[in-house]
Design a protein around this nucleic acid. Structure first.
Lengths: 302, 302
DNA sequence: CGCGTTTACGCCTCACGTAAACATC
DNA sequence: GATGTTTACGTGAGGCGTAAACGCG
C-alpha cells in the first residue's frame, strides 16, 4: 500500500470515471488502473465492481474511501507543516462564468500566482450548470458560479454578489413607455443560455411581472450579447457597472429601475469531501477578489 | 514522501542507531540512510543532525515523529481491517529469560505460530537487564522479564509470577540448622549474574535477613546452577516447581521455608510509543501462556 | 460501434545491496 | 582504529505510457 495507490483510489472513487481521475493525477489511465489493481491486491479486497459498463465502488471501497482521505490529508498536513509559506503546488483546474472571466478572474489569477508560484492554474470558462457538472465529475477543483448548486455532492459558499439591470438600445427604449411593455411588444430577450445563472434571474423577474412567453436569443458570450443589445436586436440584462458605462457612452439605456432585478449571489462551489488545503486557500482568495462592482469592472471596455 | 520513507524515519528515530533500524526493516543501512535522505529532501527539512558521531533527531525530526507514527498506524489499521484474521505478519524479535525459555516459551511460540502463521519469530534468551537494553535499542520488539524496567522508555505489564525457594544439596542442608546459618557459614550463593531479575530477589532477601557480604558464584545458565547446587558447590534459589522435583528425587533439599523469598513478578516490556497491533497481540498471548507454576514446569527434566 | 477499463509490452527510472569512503570519537 | 553514516556504482524490479484487446451498453 502506497500513497500513490491511495491517491489513485481516492480520485478514481470520487471522479466520474478513471479518465478524469487519471487526468487529475497527471498519469495515464493505464497507470491509474494498475495502481488501483495493486492496491486491491495489497489489501486483498475488491474495491471496484467491474461487472458493469463502468467501475463502481464496492462496499469495501466505500469503507476505504474516508480512511484513504484521512491518510492523504494527514500526509498533506505533514508536507504543509514543513513548507508552510512555500504555497500550494500542483495543478488547479477551476471554472468561472464568462462575466467573472472578464472582471475579477485576471486579478484572481495574479493573486494566486503571487502566493502560490508552484500552483499551475487552469481556468475554464463556461456557464454555471456546465461548471457544476464538471466539478461534480471531478474535472474541476472548484467553480465560482451564480447561485447555489442543487447537487447533493457539491458544497457552495457565497463569495460576492452582482447587480444586473435591464438595458436596451436608445432607439428601442424610446419607443415604449416601460420595460414590461417593451418585452410584451415582442422584443426578444438577448441572454445567456438556460444553463447560466443569469437566466434564472431573468425567469424570476418575468414570473414576478406576469410575463409568460417571450422570444429569446441565447448566446454564450457576454460581449456578443452586449453587441446585440447595442445593435437593437432586443432587450437584455447586463451587469450594472457595464451597463452604466455603455449608457454614459449613449450606446444603451438603462431601463425602468422601478422594477429592479434581484441581486445575484455568486458562490464558490466545490466537491463535498474535498478537504484539501487548496480548497480553503482558493475559497478565501476568491472571496477576497471576486467583485462585480462598478469600479472593479471591465476597465478596458469602451 | 512514501510510507517506506516514513517507516525508515520512524525506526531510525526510535532505534539506537541506523544499523538496528535497518535490521528491523530488513534493508541495508545504505537503503535506510537513503530513504531518510529522500524524506528530508521531500519535506525540505533536516530530520537528523549528522554533526556528531551519531545521527540525532533535530527539532523538526522530533516534531515529525508522532505524526509519522500516526500515519503508519492508520495505514496498518487499514491493512488489518481488510485482513482481520489473516494474523500478523513480518518479523518479531523478542527476549525472555532462560527460565521462561525452559518453561513456557515453547508453548508460547507454538501458540503464536498457530495464530499468526505469517509471523517469523526470533526468540532471544538473555538476562533481564540485557533484554531491557535490547528492547530499548529497538533490537527486540518486546521481552518478558522479571520485575519492572527502570527505563523511562519502556512500558511494562505484569503477565505472571514465579515463586522461588532456597535449596541446597542434602549433604550441605543437613550440616546447618537454618538457611541463614548456611550462608553465614560461608557457603557461596550460586546464582545468575547481577543483571538477572532473580539476583534482585536474592539481594532483597539477604538485606531482610541482615546478611551483608557473601561469596557468589555467577553463572548465566540455570541448568548449570542446578547442577552446581546438586554437586554441593553452594546454596541457591530455584523455581519452586523445579526444586520440588529435585527434592523428590532426593537430589536437593528445599530449605527453611519459614523465611520465604518474595514472589517475583514477570512483566511484558515494550517500547513506549510502539503502538503496533503486534504488541497488543503478543502481550495478550504472553499473559495467557506465561506460567512458572509446578505443573507447567520442565516436563522433560529428571 | 462507442465508451470505459484492462492487458501486453518495451522503456526507463529508481530503489536496492555491495563495497568503499568519510567522519567522529 | 572502532563505530556509525554516507557515497559510488552496477544491477534488477517495477512503474510508466503507447497501443491493442476486452466487455458491457
Amino acid at each position: 500500500m502506497t500513497f500513490k495507490q491511495l491517491e489513485a483510489f481516492y480520485w478514481a472513487a470520487t471522479c466520474a470515471n478513471f479518465a478524469i481521475a487519471a487526468q487529475r493525477l497527471h498519469v495515464s489511465i493505464s497507470s491509474l488502473s494498475k495502481r488501483i489493481a495493486e492496491l486491491e491486491e495489497s489489501l486483498g479486497v475488491q474495491l471496484f465492481d467491474r461487472g458493469g459498463h463502468r467501475a463502481v465502488l464496492t462496499e469495501a471501497g466505500h469503507g476505504l474511501l474516508p480512511r484513504a482521505l484521512e491518510l492523504l490529508d494527514a500526509a498533506a498536513a505533514i508536507r504543509n507543516s514543513f513548507a508552510p509559506d512555500a504555497g500550494l503546488a500542483g495543478r488547479c483546474a477551476f471554472g468561472v462564468g464568462e462575466l467573472s472571466a472578464m472582471t475579477w478572474l485576471p486579478r484572481f489569477v495574479a493573486e494566486v500566482r503571487a502566493r502560490h508560484p508552484q500552483l499551475v492554474l487552469e481556468p475554464y470558462v463556461d456557464t454555471g450548470a456546465v461548471l457544476a457538472a464538471r466539478v461534480d465529475d471531478g474535472e474541476l477543483d472548484f467553480a465560482v458560479v451564480a447561485g447555489r448548486s442543487a447537487r447533493q455532492a457539491i458544497l457552495s459558499q457565497p463569495v460576492t454578489q452582482a447587480r444586473f439591470v435591464w438595458t436596451a438600445a436608445p432607439a428601442l427604449a424610446d419607443r415604449y413607455p416601460g420595460l414590461p411593455d417593451l418585452i410584451r411588444a415582442g422584443q426578444p430577450i438577448v441572454a445567456l443560455p438556460p444553463s447560466a445563472g443569469t437566466t434564472r434571474l431573468i425567469d424570476d423577474w418575468l414570473l414576478a411581472h406576469g410575463i409568460a412567453k417571450n422570444e429569446r436569443i441565447s448566446c454564450n458570450n457576454w460581449g456578443a450579447i452586449a453587441g446585440m443589445l447595442v445593435a437593437s436586436v432586443g432587450v437584455g440584462i447586463l451587469p450594472e457597472g457595464w451597463a452604466q458605462k455603455l449608457a454614459r457612452a449613449n450606446l444603451l439605456r438603462i431601463l425602468d429601475d422601478t422594477h429592479p432585478l434581484a441581486t445575484l449571489t455568486y458562490t464558490f462551489q466545490w466537491r463535498r469531501g474535498d478537504s484539501r488545503p487548496l480548497i480553503d486557500q482558493m475559497l478565501a482568495l476568491a472571496a477576497d477578489v471576486a467583485d462585480f462592482s462598478a469600479d472593479a469592472q471591465l476597465p478596458w471596455l469602451i
